[in-house]
Simulated scan of single mutants.
Amino acid sequence: MKNFLTHLVPITILAFLFITFLQSALDKVFDFKGNTVWLKQHFENTILAKQVPILLGIVLVLEFIAALGCILGVTFLIYSGETYVATFAMFISCITLLALLFGQRVAKDYPGALTITCYFLVAIFGLYVVNA
């Protein structure tokens, strides 16, 4: 219980990121074709247009790694107080969100980029808190 209370803020942020990335990854797995069709339209006038399927696969892998890292980070924080896994999870979450932000900026989807920025602020704050 002591580790849980000591690491309450990063645990909560990791739980938030876990839910975010797991849901997003599962959506891609169960509707890869639908996501590909939508993203091809989203990126049709950009340099990323022909790479949508491979980029979607890369984002899917990053999201699964981030989700797995988040749940493992929570586990390590609670049971041992160890922060290395949580740090990795926060960092890979930031990298994943930066990749998504890049795509939104290339597509000139500024409202979408703003939404990702909100998630990024949570992740970067978590990275800061877990290493403070």
Rank of each mutant, 00 (worst) to 15 (best):
L14A: 05
V29F: 14
S24T: 06
T36Y: 00
L14D: 12
V52P: 11
I13S: 11
V29E: 14
K50S: 11
Q23V: 05
W38E: 14
F16G: 09
A49N: 07
A25M: 03
F32E: 09
P10G: 08
Q23S: 14
P10D: 12
T12G: 15
L48R: 14
G34M: 05
I13W: 11
K50I: 08
Q23E: 03
A15Y: 05
E44R: 11
F30N: 14
V52N: 10
L26R: 10
W38S: 14
P10L: 11
I47Q: 08
T20R: 15
K40N: 15
P10Y: 12
H7G: 02
L48A: 12
F32A: 10
N45S: 13
K40P: 03
W38R: 15
I11L: 00
W38Q: 15
V9P: 07
D31V: 05
T36K: 07
K33I: 05
W38L: 11
K40C: 06
K50H: 08
V29Y: 12
T20K: 15
A25R: 01
G34N: 07
D27V: 05
F43S: 04
L14I: 00
V29T: 01
T20Q: 15
F21L: 07
D27I: 00
N45W: 02
F18D: 12
T20A: 09
A15E: 10
L26W: 10
D31S: 08
T46S: 02
I47E: 11
I13P: 13
Q23R: 10
I11G: 09
E44C: 12
L14K: 04
P10A: 06
P10Q: 12
F16P: 00
L8H: 13
D31C: 02
V29M: 09
F18C: 09
H42F: 13
L17R: 00
Q23A: 15
T20W: 11
T46Y: 10
P10F: 09
I54A: 06
L26E: 13
L8R: 01
T36H: 06
L22D: 04
D27L: 01
A25Q: 05
L26S: 07
G34F: 06
K40A: 11
A25Y: 02
V52G: 12
F43H: 05
Q51V: 00
N35G: 14
V52C: 12
W38N: 12
F43P: 06
A15H: 05
I54D: 06
H7R: 04
L48Y: 14
F30M: 13
